Computed example of a mutant assay.
Amino acid sequence: MVATAAAFAVSLSGCGGSEQDGPASSSDTAAAGKEGDARVVKTVMGDVEVGAAPERVVVLDTDALDSAVTLGVTPVGATTVVDKAPFSTYLPADKLKGIEPVGLIAEPNLEAIAALKPDLILSNKVRDEKNYASLSKIAPTVLSDTTGPTWRENFQLHADALGKKNEAAAVVADYDAHVKRLTEALGGAAKAKETKVGFVRFVEGADTRLYLNDTFVGSIFKDLQVGRPANQDTTGFSLDVSAEQIDKANADVIFYSTYGDPKKAKETDTVGGPLWKNLDAVKRKTAFKVDDNLWMLGIGYTGAGQILDAMEKNYAGAGPR
């Protein structure tokens, strides 16, 4: 599968502090909603006044894009991972039609955003704390604290800002039902727990990453109640290993993806080497290559649902043998 520049999104560190203005109210922005329609949304940056039903929404990270599309809103603008990169390709193309690029994640183009006359901007503190004062002068700006494993809480915040709480409840119920179906397909919670599941990401320009529990994929594994290899069943983002340490990826089931060129990311040599071939999942034919774009950028309910679909297709029923 063709890899995208998703590593940027998962490796970008938190932004430093910057001068902060108070949250913009609807009276301070050109597009905060009709007079009398304003609602207060509680955010990590304080209370933000938002119009009743924002229609011109700009999203500045992939989780906010997933939330908007999941809730039936096509943003007028969105950032991309790198210049001229497509928006999240796992999302339906018709739901992305007409979205204008407004710079890069963590480096939004403020002039391009202002030109779209948004009535709501969605992002997170990790990416855009430094831009918050400027963004708030353009439109009400709702930031979550971070991204990744907090995707469920972020979705609720986005739904509140978009005036879509009822729709959000239905989305959550559908996801919970999907998790239950897949857990049952894996033989039930007890059997699922016996199956040790790992995620490996080959990254061009960096060591290979074994993803831990404080990640988007780690949270989905937890929802399914699957087991985790002991060295990956811990808090944190990733355990980084060299090609010579790939035996540390051992698990009953392995999902793996690649960012960048497979050769430069060491996937080609590693997967073709003896250590990889000796892993339990590889010997059992339960090591599955998956779409890096989806598993790394699909930080929301639509992405999570598609990951559950992929897991069900690949290995439902796989367990210790």
Rank of each mutant, 00 (worst) to 15 (best):
K191D: 04
T215E: 02
V217N: 04
A185Y: 08
S219P: 01
V203E: 13
L143H: 01
S219K: 08
D176F: 09
L224Q: 04
A185V: 08
T208N: 12
P149Q: 03
L157H: 01
F221Q: 06
A189H: 08
G188T: 05
L182N: 11
T183N: 09
R181G: 14
K196A: 08
N213M: 12
V217A: 03
A177Y: 12
D223Q: 01
K196G: 03
D207S: 12
R209H: 13
A206V: 15
E194H: 01
T183C: 05
A192G: 14
A185M: 11
G188N: 07
D176Q: 15
K164I: 08
K222S: 14
E204L: 10
T141V: 07
K165L: 13
E194Q: 14
R209V: 09
P140L: 07
K222F: 05
A169F: 07
K222Q: 14
N213E: 14
G205S: 09
D214E: 03
A185P: 11
D160N: 14
F155A: 02
T150N: 08
V179R: 05
A168S: 07
T195F: 02
E204G: 13
G198K: 06
R201D: 07
R152Y: 00
S144V: 06
L210K: 03
A159K: 05
P149T: 03
I220P: 00
Q156T: 14
N166L: 14
F199N: 10
H158F: 06
Y175W: 09
G205K: 00
D145V: 11
N154A: 05
Y175D: 07
A206H: 15
K196E: 04
T195M: 02
G205W: 07
N213Q: 14
G188M: 03
D160Q: 15
I220Q: 02
E204S: 12
G205H: 05
P149C: 02
A168F: 04
V217K: 01
L212V: 05
T146E: 11
T147S: 12
E184Y: 00
A170D: 11
D223Y: 02
T146W: 10
D207M: 11
P149D: 03
A185H: 08
T195S: 05
F199I: 07
R201N: 14
G218E: 06
A161F: 09
V171W: 04
V142K: 03
S144E: 04
V197R: 07
T208W: 10
G218C: 04
T147E: 13
T146L: 06
D160A: 15
E204H: 08
D214K: 02
I220H: 00
V179S: 00
K196L: 10
D174E: 15
D214C: 03
A177N: 15
T215D: 02
